[in-house]
Structure formats: structure tokens, C-alpha cells
Design a protein around this nucleic acid. Sequence first.
DNA 1: GGTATTAACTCAAATAACTTGAACTATCAA
DNA 2: TTGATAGTTCAAGTTATTTGAGTTAATACC
Lengths: 389, 389
Amino acid sequence: MTSSPPHQGSNAERSRSRNRTAVLGQIHHAGELGRAELARALDLSVQAVSNIIADLLQDGMLVEKGARSAGRGLPAVQYGIKPEGGFALGIEVRPNVIFAVLLDLTGKAVFTRRSVLKSARPEDVILEVTRLRDAALTEVPAAKDRMLGAGIVMPGPFGATGLSGRETELPEWQNVNPAELFQNALGLPVEVSNDANAAAMAERISGCAHGLGSFAYLYFGTGLGLGLVSQGHLVRGAFGNAGEIGHIPVPTPLGSAPLETRLSRMSVRHQLEMSGHSNIDFEKIEKLYATSDPELMTWLGSASDALGHAMQIIENVFDPQTTILGGAMPDAVLRHLVRNVSLNNASVSRRSDNPLPRLQCGASGRLVATLGAAALILNSRLTPHAATH
Amino acid sequence: MTSSPPHQGSNAERSRSRNRTAVLGQIHHAGELGRAELARALDLSVQAVSNIIADLLQDGMLVEKGARSAGRGLPAVQYGIKPEGGFALGIEVRPNVIFAVLLDLTGKAVFTRRSVLKSARPEDVILEVTRLRDAALTEVPAAKDRMLGAGIVMPGPFGATGLSGRETELPEWQNVNPAELFQNALGLPVEVSNDANAAAMAERISGCAHGLGSFAYLYFGTGLGLGLVSQGHLVRGAFGNAGEIGHIPVPTPLGSAPLETRLSRMSVRHQLEMSGHSNIDFEKIEKLYATSDPELMTWLGSASDALGHAMQIIENVFDPQTTILGGAMPDAVLRHLVRNVSLNNASVSRRSDNPLPRLQCGASGRLVATLGAAALILNSRLTPHAATH
DNA sequence: GGTATTAACTCAAATAACTTGAACTATCAA
DNA sequence: TTGATAGTTCAAGTTATTTGAGTTAATACC
């Protein structure tokens, strides 16, 4: 991850690529659009848009959707994203399991697989990932020569930080450059990120943050992560480790504690195990919630408080359009938290002009991070960077 | 402030403008550079850079600096920013006073003035601001037809938020669009922002964050503000109110309190007034510090703690290259805080590969926000937005 | 029902900025 | 002294865009 200021010149070729991205992005966002509408939105000439659309049709990334007449004048021919126009592989590496999905260009999952890992050593992971890639391409042959890239989700933090060696879940990857490794193994453009960032992108591409410019995603992982999106792109920080919100100490009735000791899978598990439960997994939590298990309810109370604190930090520091809560946690639990959290009224985020809720549940389920891995790639094809003023 | 996703197409004209910005930015950052060096940095052809430089010389924004021979080959002619190539006006509006500066293209202040405000009503402020603009142009006639724009710093939050009417320092501006108002009055491009954001830009243009891509600025205003810079540009949030870090409750020995009750001008003043001091202003604090006033020292202890908490939030959420502490507070006090804060070692920001200190003092003095107002304009002329990958 | 108006779209030419490739120049090293 | 190296310029060539005139197909009005 680089920290240098952004500097690259532009030329005809790069303009072209930017404009194709912008056209695809607008159409993805709106569902379908006509040439003239696009030209106005992008501040380009109709002719330019016409040429670009002809190109994208040729390349099989767009489909014609029939004309739509709105008032006077020639009805505009609408264009939509062609799902099979491009595919992105999403890979989530956890210490003992790998998840893989294949998304089409609209962000729909067309392949999903889970694969147990016997070892988390880089060479074994790479081997399994190429197998998963092959399985995906066998199941969806249309993707064979239309792969846009692969997104990889792995536990951070990345690089040599003060957290190194302490909380790393994949110690074997300490001195490896994952992006390079996967890029060589897969022969595809690769983006690597943590679970929370990826999850945010999943919601932006096909979930409840569809097309939003600025929002935050609170992710229940082992710990608690935060994905920040600004101007349609992830805010990764200077070293790619932005969003480690779980380590922040927040006030508690008995002093203070890191946020994720009260708001994370780790913390539910801990609390439930203390009271004699065992084998705490997704399904178990779901069941306990269905039966209103008192211990789980106690945890939920404390977690709601912690969530309120997290929201204060997120809203005051980042001022997002909305915040999304998700991750590998049963929907019912997430909904409970969203319903029961108390949001501070004295906040810059309580606005009369924002139609979105301040906090909402994610719409992508427990595989959100894996989906998001692939969404990282799609987003780079659908969202140009901010224009010069 | 807009919240929609960023979408604008590119064409030859916009490429040109982007490339000129990129060339100026690279030169600003490096001090001076040759054509070939620029071409490599921007991934443009040497010929393109040559044409752009010819243009910028013609426009009076660059100066030739003589050749520099480095090893074999023809020595490269160096180019530097021509200070009088462009000027930016910086205005800081406070309830009872206005500050104004004029910066040249290198970010040097060539005019500074303070003006007492009898009323903070929009029409009176506008009148005074145009007067200050005229005074600046009289004192620096070279700026007359080379004004790039005006930056305005005002207390936020902007728009109708949950804080409206409670903490606003300029109630008369509640239902006014400041940007539009100033733009019409001054006939210049205008950018409006809060003090912390502006301060961050001041340090990026001519202070200790010179040219940095990603950093944070903690600003001692009346309250406590946070300026976030990512990829060389401010992160403003969906509604322009990002960075209200002062309102976040943090743990204290006796429960919890909003950060700015312990770390802000307001809080020093409060603490010193409680113990019998009066007329607490900048100079008074400076004197009390020089004499190691026990009450001030007590405040400093609590403030250091609070600063430590702020740093945990900033580093974990944003992962900056460095954080800068500044604002309208004596340098000695800022230095004391930086020296005495205890930074958590278990942080993603403790890295072996970052040469910058995790926390440092600002280099722009107490006028930093006013300087920053003008720096907002300069930054837009020196930093292109991120390129497509 | 006919006609004017509106808006989307296409074709062909013009434009603007960048890239390419060959030639030239100045410095260093052997 | 000669060769290698690197910066720079000149003149064409390339590319994606804009411009402007003309076509098509709806709605609105008389």
C-alpha cells in the first residue's frame, strides 16, 4: 500500500478508459439509461457517448433495452449492463477455510463455494485458490475469457505495524506480498483488502449502499472492522490499515474497554462460553436468539451500547450518508442491534435532508466479505475517480 | 456540499487542465524539476511535458532555474513555481473578527490583516471581506489579475443538522449559502470549509505535511476539530461535516466526557477561570505556561490523556502517515502536549517503515486556519484527483 | 387530422492534446 | 579523443473528443 500523493497525467487513451468506466457506472447505478441522458450526466457530447456505447455493445458489456418515451421527442433507446459482459472472482481467506464467489458484471453471484484449508501456508492457499478459480470457470464457462480480476480478502493488518505478531490470524503470511503472489498465480489483476472494506464494496455494488458516494460499514468479523467509502472509493489510509475501529477504547460502566471486547463475534462467544455454552457458531447464535437466551440478551444490551459509541465515532469523524451493519452474524441479531441502539440526537448526522437511515442492516448476508472481494474489482470498472473541479 | 457519487467524463480540454495541475503539483512538491523527470513521474511523453511547460512559462506560473547535471547526459533544465504566477485569498470569519491573508503560488503569505467585526450579519461580513480583498490587491498589485480564488473558513456545522442552533457561533448564517454569497460578492471561485480542514491544507501546501497524501490535523479551535486528508484531498464526508471529533465521548477517570471538554481552548479557559484567572487569551496562556502555572499544568495533564484518546481514534480509523497538532494555541503548549502524550504501542500506526513521527506540531502558527483557507484554492491547482488504476 | 415543436440520434468533418520517431546537443567515462 | 548516456526539439501521426448539419419519431396544439 502506497502513501505518496496521487499523480498521473492524462491522455486520449486514459480519457477513453475513464469515460467507458463512467458510462458503465452511471448505467449500473440507474439500471438503464439513454445516450442523451448519459451525455448530460457525464458532461460529454452525445456523439462521444454514442461512440462509447457502440464500443461497449461490441465488447458485450451493454445490452439494448428498448426505447422509453418520456414526453415529447424521439424516445430514447435505453441501455443496461449485460450481466455476462464481465466477471470478478472473490476470495476470502480465513485461517482454516476459503470462500469463493464469482460475480457477473451486475454484481450477481453466479458461483459460490466453500473449501476447507488444511494449512494456511501461502503455497497451500495459492493452490486451493487456483483450484477454486478453475471450479468457477468450469461451472460458468462464459466467464472464461471475460475475467476482470480477483479480489482477495484476508485478515489485516498489512505491513509491519505495532500489532504485528500479536493479533495476526495468518502468521505464515507475515513477510509475503499477497497481491503479487495471487496476481502471479491467477494471471489476473488482483486487489487485496480486509473484510470490512470488502463488505462495504459489496453493499455499494449490489446491496443497500447501491451507488452511494459516502458511507461507512461496520463489520462483525472476528473483531470489529470499519469500511469507509468516500466519493465511491475506499479510504484505505496511508498504509492500507484504515478502519481498525475495534481497538478503540470506549467508555463502559466500569471504566473503558476496546470496542471489540463488547461488539464482535469474539465477544459474544466469550460471553456465552463463560456461562457454559459451547461450540458457539453462527447457527448456535441464531438459535439462542430465537429462544431469547438471557445470556445472549445481556450481551446484546452491552453490544447495543458499544454500537452507539461506534456510531458516535463514525458519524462525527466521517459524516457518512448512512452506516451499514453487517458481517458473519445472524440477520436477526443485526436487526436487533439496529433497532435497539440509541443514536445521539446531537450529531451532525441527524439531518432533515437525508432520506437514508443513519444506521441500517446490510443486505448481503454472511458471505458479504467474499462478495465484497469481487466487488472491489467491479467497483474499479464502474466508478471513475473524482473529476477535477 | 454534495453526496452523490462522482461522475464526470474526460476530454482533451479536461486532460490538459489535469496535466497542467499535475505538472505544477509535482514541481511544487519537489521544489524544482526537469522535463524528463516530470514525464516519468506523470507517465506522459517528454514532448507533452515540454508543451505544457512552454505553456506554463508563457502564463507566468513557472520559472526556469538553470540546468542541473546529474551523471552522464545532457543536464536537465530545472523549472520551479513562479511565486507571483497566482494568488489565493484566505478569509477566516469568526463571530467578532475577520482574518485575511493573501498567498502567492508557492504558499507564502504576502499580505495579512485582522479586522474587527461589529456585526456578523451576512451583509456586514460580505462588506468587510470585499474591503479586505481590496486592501490586499492595493498592497500587492501584482495579484490584481492573477487571483485564483478565495477560501473561506467559517464555524460549521453546515446545513440543518442535529447540532443546529445549539452550538452555532454564527446564528445569522443559519439559512444562507455562504459559498454562493462570497462567490457573487468577490467574483472569484470560492471554497468554504471549517477551520480544521483548512488548517490541514495549510500544512500540506507550505507546512510540515508538505505534499503528503494522507494525514490528519487536530485543530484547537473553540472546540476540537479534525481535518482528514486522503490522496492529497480533504475527506469532507457526505454533507461536509466530517471531522467533528470534539463531540466524541471518551473514557475519563470519572466515567466519560466529550473530547473537547478536555482538549480545546474552551476547556483551558473554563479550567483556568474556575481557579480565579480571568481574560484568558492566547498571550495569557503563553505567560501561564512560561511560569508553569499549576492550574494550567493540571489541565495539560488531562489534555494529554485526552489527546492520547484522540490519537487512538485517528490512527485506528484513518491510518494516516502522520498527525499534526495545531490551532490557536501557544506553540509551547502544543509542544508540551506532543512531548507528553502517550501513544499506544499496539497500533497500526507504529510502523518501522514510516519515517514521519506519529504526532507532531503544526508549522504554521496561530493563523493556520486563515492560511489554510487560501491553501484550499492552491491545493485545487496543485493536486489532481487520483488517477484510474 | 394536420402541423409545429421537441428531443434523440447519426453522419461527416474539425479540433485538441497527446504520442511517436528521428535528429540534435551536452555531459561524463574510458 | 571517442563512445555512451540522457535531455531536448522537430515534425508528423494518432486518438478520442467536439461541432454542426441533417434525420427520425414522438407529443402538443390548432
